[in-house]
C-alpha cells in the first residue's frame, strides 16, 4: 500500500502555529517532503508546543502544596485497613508539621457503641453573642483566610419563625436586642441527609452515632451536597485554607478538624474528636448562657433526652423530610394554672 505523498503546493500562505499544513499528494505534486514544507511543519509544531506551554505556565506556581502519590492512591475511609490508616495519619502529620511546624496528635476516633448524638438549642436563652461561632473556628482549624464558619447566627424579629426574615450580619455593641431573638444554625446531622444521598462518590456519610462526616481525601469537590443541603451547613474550600501557625489546634482526628486541602467540602461534625471521648462540643462549652444542650439520645438519663421529653421542641424545615438531630426549643411557660377542660382534652 502506498502512503499518500506530501506536497506543499496548496493555496495556504505561511501559517505558523497550526503545525503541519501539507495536503495529501495530488497528481501533479512533487514527491517526498520538500525542505520548505519540512521547515514550515517544524516551525508550526514548535510554535504550537510553545503556545501550549505558555498557556500552562501558571502551573509552575503549584510548588509548596506538592502532589502526594500516597494520598492519590489512598483508599476510601471505609476500605482502609488499620495499617492503611496509620500510613495516612503519618502522612497527614508530616504534612501538618511541614506547614505549621507543630507535630499534631492525630487519630482516627471511632463512634461509641449505643450512642446517638443529638443537639438541643434553647432559643429563649440564646443572646446572639456569637461566642460559639468563634470557638468552633478555633477548635476545628477553620480557615481564617478566607474566613470560614460552620455556625451562622440569625437575628430574628418578633412575630415570625421564617428564617428568611433573619438578619445574618447584625452588628450591635451589646447583645441581646430586646426586640429580637437569636437563632444559631449549624449542621443538623440529619437522619435522612440529602447531602449524603446526592454525593456521587460516597465521600460523605452518616456514622453510627449519627454524625455526618466528610472524607476530605475522597471528596471530588462537585459541590452537589452544598446545593442539596436545606440548612446551608456545608462549606467548600475555594482556596487553600490559611490558619496562623500559632492558632492551629494540634488535637486532631481524621474525620473532623485536621487541616483540609483545597477544593473539598467540610462541615460541622459535632466536634467528634471531643464528643466521642466524652467531652462536649466547643460551641457548647463556650456558651455563656447555657443555651446549648448536647448528649446521647439513647441514654434515658441524658439532658437532651429530658429536653426532648419536657420542652416545646421543634426542628427547622420539618417539611423537607430531613429528620434533623438538631432541635430548637423555648423553655419558658407562662405561669398557667392547670385548667380542667370540660369533656376531656380531646
Amino acid at each position: 500500500m502506498q502512503l499518500p505523498q506530501m506536497n506543499d503546493n496548496n493555496a495556504s500562505g505561511g501559517c505558523g502555529c497550526s503545525g503541519s499544513d501539507s495536503g495529501h499528494g495530488g497528481c501533479a505534486s512533487r514527491p517526498g517532503m520538500t525542505r520548505r514544507s519540512f521547515l514550515r511543519t517544524s516551525a508550526g509544531a514548535t510554535g504550537g508546543i510553545a503556545a501550549l506551554a505558555a498557556s500552562l505556565s501558571p502551573l509552575r506556581e503549584m510548588g509548596g502544596e506538592g502532589f502526594s502519590m500516597q494520598e492519590f492512591l489512598q483508599k476510601h475511609y471505609k476500605e482502609m485497613s488499620e495499617s492503611d490508616m496509620d500510613t495516612a495519619l503519618t502522612r497527614i502529620s508530616d504534612q501538618v508539621e511541614k506547614r505549621y511546624e507543630v507535630r499534631p496528635d492525630i487519630r482516627d476516633i471511632k463512634p461509641m457503641d449505643g450512642v446517638e448524638f443529638v443537639y438541643a438549642l434553647n432559643l429563649s436563652r440564646c443572646i446572639g453573642c456569637r461566642k460559639c461561632v468563634h470557638a468552633c473556628v478555633a477548635e476545628n482549624n477553620l480557615s481564617r483566610e478566607p474566613e470560614m464558619q460552620y455556625i451562622r447566627v440569625l437575628e430574628m424579629p418578633r412575630g415570625t419563625m421564617d428564617i428568611e426574615q433573619g438578619d445574618h450580619h447584625y452588628d450591635r455593641p451589646t447583645v441581646p436586642d430586646e426586640d429580637h431573638f437569636y437563632m444559631p444554625i449549624q449542621c443538623h446531622q440529619c437522619a435522612n441527609p440529602p447531602c449524603v444521598k446526592v454525593c456521587p462518590v460516597e465521600a460523605t456519610w452518616a456514622e453510627e452515632d449519627g454524625i455526618v462526616v466528610v472524607d476530605y481525601d475522597w471528596c471530588i469537590g462537585c459541590r452537589y451536597c452544598e446545593a442539596a443541603c436545606p440548612y446551608w451547613a456545608r462549606r467548600f474550600n475555594f482556596s487553600t485554607p490559611k490558619i496562623p501557625k500559632a492558632d492551629l489546634n494540634p488535637n486532631m482526628s481524621y474525620l473532623s478538624n485536621r487541616p483540609r486541602p483545597k477544593g473539598v467540602m467540610e462541615k460541622c461534625h459535632f466536634c467528634l474528636h471531643r464528643t466521642r471521648e466524652g467531652r462536649m462540643p466547643a460551641c457548647l462549652e463556650v456558651c455563656p448562657t447555657g443555651s446549648r444542650k448536647f448528649g446521647n439520645v439513647l441514654d434515658p438519663n441524658s439532658e437532651v433526652r429530658e429536653v426532648l421529653r419536657t420542652k416545646r421542641v421543634f426542628v427547622l424545615k420539618e417539611d423537607v423530610g430531613t429528620l434533623p438531630r438538631f432541635f430548637y426549643y423555648f423553655d419558658e411557660r407562662d405561669p398557667l394554672q392547670s385548667v380542667t377542660v370540660e369533656g376531656g382534652a380531646s
Partner: peptide, 17 residues
C-alpha cells in the same frame, strides 16, 4: 473545570453511589 478536585475523578470508578 467545575470540580474542586479533578485529580480525584477516578474515585467515581471506585465508589459509585
Amino acid at each position: 473545570v467545575d470540580m474542586g478536585r479533578p485529580d480525584r475523578g477516578l474515585h467515581l470508578l471506585q465508589r459509585f453511589n
